[in-house]
Amino acid sequence: MIRFWPEAASDTAVQVDSVVLLLLAVSGAILLLVLALVLGFAIRYRRGSAAPRGELPELLKKEVEVGWTFAILLLALFIFSWASVTELGALRPDPEAIEIHVVAKQWMWKTQHPNGAREIDALHVPRGETVRLLMTSQDVIHSFFVPAFRIKQDVLPGRITSLQFRATAVGEYPLFCAEYCGTLHARMGGTVTVMEPEDYARWLAAQPEGDDLGREGAALFVSLGCAGCHNGSTVVRAPGLAGVYGRDVNLADGRVVRADEAYLRDSILQPRRDVVAGFEPLMPSFAGLVGEDELQRLVAYLRSLREGGSP
């Protein structure tokens, strides 16, 4: 079977395809216009024809140039604004999204669902529900790419990146790494399986469950000694962490930053870079002491803390 257009299996795919089709239509129209003008002038002004060949009036020259330039400018601004709205709309976080954590390494994808179920080189998601992936790499730069969804996001070591989508068609779709990551890069793939919500719920319930990332992070938080300073009732004064995620934090140098995943991660690895106002820079760095998996667990735990201190 010859497929003239790749299958579209997500809401993002429909939006991306709309922009691409518009660009193809505009490019095709301009190409046909130019070809028609070239062909028409070649016939009309061929050697030996009686067509007049005098100079164009100066005023007509300016009108044509200004009109053509203005029309192209308006068209470019329209396409830019439409594509920008489409792209930025996909970046708006959905608070109701299913959050799945992804760790890339040479050469596999490891995923973990909210209930602790884990997969390797596979990802199961429900149709019609928003899924948000929080991704990091254990070694080099990778890139999470699902052509049928029209989504691609670089996965970086030392940083958490996110990707959000909503699948619209049940089926199995190839997953690729779109960034050369080593000798077995071509084999770093997998499948994304889209299921009906009720089938996904049954599949998820049948998977071996472990503690979710938040619970694992809570245990790690205690074992690393973090609770000894951030508990609030200790002798060493440290910032309270209850409800910190998503909040504006005042820093000692006068800056105000939003406590997102990147801030929480940096505070664990580089605690002296963004010191909270009113506190001394006493916290040691955990760089080299915790791996990427452990960082994901710690960040998940901190994100789960509500006002009052419990997940």
Rank of each mutant, 00 (worst) to 15 (best):
E307C: 01
V244T: 11
G116T: 03
A8S: 14
D211Y: 05
V299D: 04
D121T: 09
N250D: 14
P95R: 08
L23E: 05
G232W: 09
A122Y: 10
P93K: 07
E307N: 08
G89A: 04
I30F: 12
E63G: 06
F149K: 11
P114R: 01
R247Q: 15
K105R: 04
N250V: 07
G291H: 07
R258M: 00
V192Q: 05
L264G: 05
M195G: 00
A117E: 03
F80S: 14
V249D: 11
A205E: 07
E280N: 03
F149C: 12
L302Q: 10
L35S: 15
F165I: 02
F70H: 00
A83V: 05
A76R: 02
V14N: 10
W82D: 12
F4D: 09
P284L: 06
W107F: 06
T168S: 13
K61H: 09
A76K: 01
L91P: 03
A167C: 08
V16E: 13
L23D: 03
M188K: 13
V14P: 02
R46S: 11
D266W: 08
C177N: 15
V66K: 01
D248I: 08
M283A: 05
R255H: 01
L298P: 04
C181W: 10
R247A: 13
G278Y: 00
R92K: 13
R118E: 15
K105Q: 01
I151L: 13
H101M: 07
S84V: 05
F176Y: 15
S162L: 02
S10L: 08
L23S: 03
L74N: 07
A13W: 06
V103Q: 04
G254Y: 00
A83I: 03
V85P: 03
D266R: 15
D94I: 06
E58Q: 13
G54P: 09
V34M: 14
S10K: 08
D211M: 11
A242K: 07
V102K: 04
L22A: 04
A148L: 12
E280T: 04
E216S: 08
T168I: 05
A300R: 02
F41A: 15
D212Y: 04
A186F: 12
Q296L: 14
A25F: 03
V194P: 01
L264N: 04
V38A: 15
F70N: 00
R272D: 13
L74V: 04
G225N: 14
G288D: 09
I151R: 14
E55Q: 13
G48E: 02
L33E: 14
A76G: 06
L289T: 06
N231W: 08
R92E: 14
R44D: 06
R150F: 14
F165W: 05
A71S: 02
G243L: 10
E196F: 00
G210Q: 08
R159G: 01
I2Y: 12
V299M: 02
E87I: 04
R303N: 08
Y263D: 01
